[in-house]
Design a protein around this nucleic acid. Structure first.
Lengths: 188, 188
DNA sequence: GTCTATACGAAGATAGAC
DNA sequence: GTCTATCTTCGTATAGAC
């Protein structure tokens, strides 16, 4: 094992980002959450907080990509349903406390480096989803457009549902997107 | 004039929220941006930062509602186009520095009070948009579903475009939503 | 790899003069 | 309504021992 401590810290940071934003994802919070030793901070992350946050973004990106890849072979409608279900679970299981760590960093950072990481994650998600949607029956042009919309709408729906502490807005968006992709699948 | 200083501070806070998130919307930043006197803080906002931020959310909510109300009488497609254009301008004019202040607070606060203000704003936007969309030709059930989607997707698209420093994702989402509402208008 | 101790700045908040 | 001063807490970061 290279370092379980480092991994725990990155996972903790990702979780704190999703729940409380970049502000409250401090070293102290990460240490308290993970039980990692304080002396490890600058051993594992010599360039400080930016490096920890960048790693957390990458982790969150990879995790979602892994879930997306499991959808390979599914119809476009199924890909849509399962992608949304993934986010719905984040809301439900956290009692509206959690959202997307990548979004949290994007709106709160002024570091070009972190923005690059966030950008890479969003592009990766969009590209991979577009592939799956195309494989699942959508026309190429529809696939990229709908992939962008699926990501944007789910990110936004998660935020609105967190504010309202209710799944109602999220579920309205889900209905709309599923109905939309059904239409797109039919004409392909 | 009751107090120009108070107004300036709330406007400054709203702007800082949109650009840098809740974290960097500190009293010092607000004072520096607005030129307001430091001694005014707890005179105008006796309950401190929460009160300032709550006022900023309300202001942002009101401003958008005023723009939405100007769309009264337009077709559903026009309402959609103009709502999206509003957000596109935020991105373009700020060179991808600005987003939505309400979203910024939602994901970063742990105050139930601020969450209530954010929730009220999102509900108000959704309700008013749904009215206009219905007046503009959509079926009632479609109107509420599409209003929720329009808000969620534009909020999310703004974030993704900020991360990527490009209007590409936002414009893909716009194409998709306009095409969608055209379909909904036709069947109504 | 981890520890303690500490420097340094910034944040929110309060007190009391003007 | 505004000022200065100050308190406290918390954040990042560094130094040096173990």
């Amino acid at each position: 094992m290279v370092s379980g401590t480092r991994v725990k810290m990155v996972e903790g940071a990702a979780r704190l980002l999703a729940q409380h934003g970049l502000q409250e994802t401090s070293f102290s919070e990460v240490l308290e959450l993970t039980g990692a030793p304080r002396g490890s901070i600058y051993h594992h992350f010599p360039s400080g907080k930016d490096q920890l946050i960048a790693s957390a973004i990458d982790l969150a990106g990879d995790r979602a990509i892994r879930l997306i890849d499991e959808m390979a072979g599914a119809s476009a409608v199924d890909v849509t349903t399962r992608f949304l279900e993934m986010w719905r679970l984040v809301l439900a299981k956290s009692n509206f406390q959690a959202g997307c760590s990548v979004l949290a960093v994007t709106i709160a950072t002024d570091s070009a480096n972190l923005l690059d990481h966030a950008s890479a994650v969003f592009r990766l998600w969009r590209g991979r989803l577009a592939e799956l949607l195309q494989d699942g029956g959508l026309l190429p042009a529809d696939a990229i457009r709908f992939a962008a919309t699926l990501i944007a709408a789910s990110e936004g729906a998660v935020v609105v549902s967190r504010a309202e502490q209710s799944l109602e807005p999220f579920d309205l968006v889900t209905e709309q997107l599923v109905s939309l992709v059904e239409g797109l699948a039919k004409r392909a």
